[in-house]
């Protein structure tokens, strides 16, 4: 997989595991896929209760400027994050949303592709609402399968959660991934 600088932004509200999601992807790219990755995050009280965001820049080459300028991919899990961040999405970029939590409007027109998943609902159905981010990551992993390998991403998920929750998180990841496989056709 050859890759130019790619910017990914994760947005939602505090408590959704947005930051962990970004960290997991970064770790997968950096440690397991052996590419360059810089992970940055919103920090402080807002990361706990308010709007929160995590960003990732990935590249084949060493990364100088570590922040996203116009993200190629956005993963959005709250309406507030949608309004705050999506106007910065690259024209023609990829927008991934939790369809129960985000409703689209004209802003979304800049996206070249939009992918939707009821990640939080799925997580609730699995009996672990807290794993909505992992369901989302499974979904994201399929969408971004040309950027990072699914094995690396799943490995990173399992390495980043407490041992006693590994099985559940694996299930959550698979749920998202499978949903993507089933619903995203013709690519």
């Amino acid at each position: 997989m050859k890759m130019a600088r790619t910017e990914i932004k994760f947005g939602g509200f505090g408590g959704q595991g947005i930051i962990l999601a970004g960290f997991i992807v970064g770790k997968a790219v950096s440690l397991y896929d052996k590419k360059e990755a810089v992970f940055t995050q919103s920090y402080g009280p807002e990361a706990r209760g308010g709007a929160c965001a995590a960003s990732l820049v990935i590249d084949d080459k060493v990364i100088d400027y570590p922040y996203p300028v116009s993200p190629d991919i956005m993963v959005i899990m709250s309406q507030e994050a949608y309004h705050d961040y999506v106007p910065k999405l690259k024209e023609g970029g990829i927008l991934i949303i939790d369809e129960d939590l985000v409703s689209l409007d004209d802003i979304a027109k800049r996206a070249g592709k939009i992918y939707k998943i009821p990640a939080t609902r799925f997580a609730e159905e699995l009996g672990m609402k807290i794993a909505a981010n992992i369901v989302m990551l499974g979904f994201f992993g399929y969408v971004a399968r040309n950027l990072l390998t699914t094995e690396s991403l799943k490995k990173s998920v399992l390495e980043s959660v407490p041992a006693r929750f590994r099985d559940q998180n694996a299930k959550a990841f698979d749920k998202g991934y499978k949903y993507a496989q089933e619903t995203i056709k013709g690519e």
Partner: peptide, 10 residues
């Protein structure tokens, strides 16, 4: 600085 402190890399 805060940025370097909170930035995550390999």
């Amino acid at each position: 600085d805060e940025c370097v402190g909170h930035m995550t890399e390999r």
